[in-house]
Nucleic acid binder design. Sequence first.
DNA 1: TCCAATGTTCGATCTGCATCGTACTGTTTG
DNA 2: CAAACAGTACGATGCAGATCGAACATTGGA
Lengths: 117, 117
Amino acid sequence: MTEVIEPAIETVTIDVVLSALADPVRLTLVRALDAAGDWTCGSDVLQETGLTIGKSTLSHHIKVLRDAGMIRTRVNGTRRLVTLRYAEVEQRFPGLLTMLRGDGPSRCAAKAPSSTA
Amino acid sequence: MTEVIEPAIETVTIDVVLSALADPVRLTLVRALDAAGDWTCGSDVLQETGLTIGKSTLSHHIKVLRDAGMIRTRVNGTRRLVTLRYAEVEQRFPGLLTMLRGDGPSRCAAKAPSSTA
DNA sequence: TCCAATGTTCGATCTGCATCGTACTGTTTG
DNA sequence: CAAACAGTACGATGCAGATCGAACATTGGA
């Protein structure tokens, strides 16, 4: 069970994290990991999230998220297991994962105060 | 003292905020606002931040940040005064402004644990 | 050993966005 | 009213990054 190399959480900057999370596909991936709990395997995530991207594109996005310190990749046989670096990210950027969770692209239409002007 | 139209904070999604903050110029602007308080829209900002962009580009970035709910623009005569929507952003996305503050592009080289492998 | 399955790497393409210059709007002042 | 100033709007350009397909590892099993 080798681990793919990843940055120490202390060396991760918010600049890089913001760039990583600015992409809708990567945001979807992180949310899926957060919601689905522990592990999600590479290609399974496409089916689970409904993303329609090629596997090389997925591989690219996973690398970006890993370099941004958000996720961890462990090699298990012929498969890669991906997980959120939950505790570390929460420690380094408190509240970040919570705010990612709150807003789906079209949720949150519950109660809008009348100050829309 | 008219106010330029801005979104209600409740309608702002984290997706839009992340896209807005993913740009280094806009991140610089937000940090400058956070550090210095209010300022005017024009060449003051460029001089203060050391940014070397045209004024139309600056205007563009300010619009993006405003649409993302991060800043407010007030019209005062022939000038525009820009402020950070501090309390509102903090209420909607707790901790966000703090984590923007923490990381300069090259700071934070203090103590890296030996878990780099 | 050979084959199938899973991901990564590489090169090419294409789209979105940052940037710029110019023209335009609105405001203050002479 | 005209001129100067501050900022916006718009069209054009260039580049970074998202995407894809194909070739290349690596592993597990027949």
